[in-house]
């Protein structure tokens, strides 16, 4: 890969980040809703504020957050602050900054999504590849079928089904939250770590079962195409054994488009993660977002969305940088 390609990709990344920032800036302003006023209106509905003082307070806060400046100036300030990784402060958990909220919750989300996505990608692709491989034993090929049928069920629904059957009925797993109530987090204690893992099992299973079918299905389709390729045929003519053909000629080639598919699926991965965290009440970016939606904490909503968008776009470009390592054909383009 040449410097030119790298530069082009990075410029693309910057364009994406800039577009996402612009969208998150302008959409809320089109609706002409003042976040400060919304927040206080919500507070006053729950009682506690005298309406007389409210306008003054709102005006003061508007100045504080720069909401009284012309829109264009706000926009420039906004883009500048993003470039400084400054996403503002939370109304709800003032004076916590959005960045602080993100750094606190990110490890949870990252770990859960990384583990489940990698597992799902590996298992799904293996199952799909085997399902399309005519020489695999029938029972092995049949394993793929239930996963293909599950492919239409999103992880959020899977989560509710699992909660009902495994946690509620069979009592094999907790009904939610990050660790047992009353336990004091202590990352040096194995008992605590096990407790956390125990609480993560069901969410992880929901994410896994809800996403694996997609890989099985696309890999099966890819596998059928690759099998018809001349080089697989010639490999058989060479007298290579089944496992060698499967691994070096069939799987390696069928996986290439799947890697691109992984990059494209990252948006869906985080979307599912956000929902799952909210259903299970796990600490994480998704839960921060869900709570912010519930309490009209706008800067947190925009900040988290922007952060996730940037993260996904960056990971996507990163996967594209990895791709040439797998496919020699694009290496010297």
């Amino acid at each position: 890969m040449t410097i030119q390609v790298i530069v082009r990709r990075l410029l693309f990344l910057i364009t994406v980040v800039w577009s996402a920032s612009t969208i998150t800036f302008f959409i809320p302003r089109i609706s002409a809703k003042n976040p400060v006023r919304e927040r206080f209106a919500a507070l006053s509905r729950s009682g506690g504020f005298a309406p007389a003082d409210m306008e003054k307070i709102i005006a003061a806060y508007n100045t504080k957050f720069g909401l009284d400046k012309p829109v264009l100036e706000q926009y420039v300030d906004y883009i500048a602050s993003i470039a400084r990784f400054d996403l503002g402060v939370s109304f709800n958990l003032y004076p916590k900054t959005v960045i602080e909220l993100i750094t606190e919750s990110l490890p949870w989300t990252f770990t859960l999504l990384l583990v489940t996505t990698i597992l799902s990608f590996i298992l799904g692709n293996l199952l799909g590849a085997v399902a399309a491989w005519p020489r695999a034993p029938q029972w092995l090929r049949a394993i793929a079928t239930p996963f293909i049928l599950l492919q239409g069920v999103p992880p959020a629904i899977m989560a509710i089904l699992l909660l009902f059957f495994i946690a509620f009925r069979l009592k094999l797993a907790p009904l939610g939250s990050a660790y047992s109530t009353g336990v004091i987090p202590d990352w040096s204690s194995p008992a605590f770590i096990w407790d956390v893992v125990h609480h993560q099992l069901l969410p992880a299973l929901a994410l896994l079962l809800g996403s694996i079918g997609g890989w099985v299905l696309s890999m099966r389709g890819m596998g059928i195409t690759i099998q018809g390729e001349d080089y697989v045929n010639f490999a058989e003519h060479k007298g290579l054994s089944g496992p060698v053909i499967f691994k070096d000629y069939y799987l390696r080639n069928a996986l290439l488009p799947q890697v691109t598919g992984l990059a494209l699926a990252l948006g869906t991965v985080v979307t599912n993660g956000v929902i799952i965290e909210n259903i299970f009440g796990l600490p994480g970016l998704g839960r921060v977002l869900g709570a912010a939606i519930g309490s009209n904490d706008f800067l947190v909503i925009y900040g988290v969305v922007l952060f996730i968008t940037i993260a996904v776009a960056t990971l996507m470009v990163f996967v594209e940088f990895l791709y040439p390592l797998l496919d020699p054909r694009v290496r010297n383009e």
């Binding site: 969208i23 998150t24 948006g267 869906t268 939606i293 706008f298 909503i301 968008t309 996904v312």
Partner: peptide
């Protein structure tokens, strides 16, 4: 590359 759902969150939230 922009997760459509999150932008929808912003729109719907606004």
């Amino acid at each position: 590359p922009i997760p459509a759902f999150l932008i929808q969150v912003i729109i719907a939230g606004s």
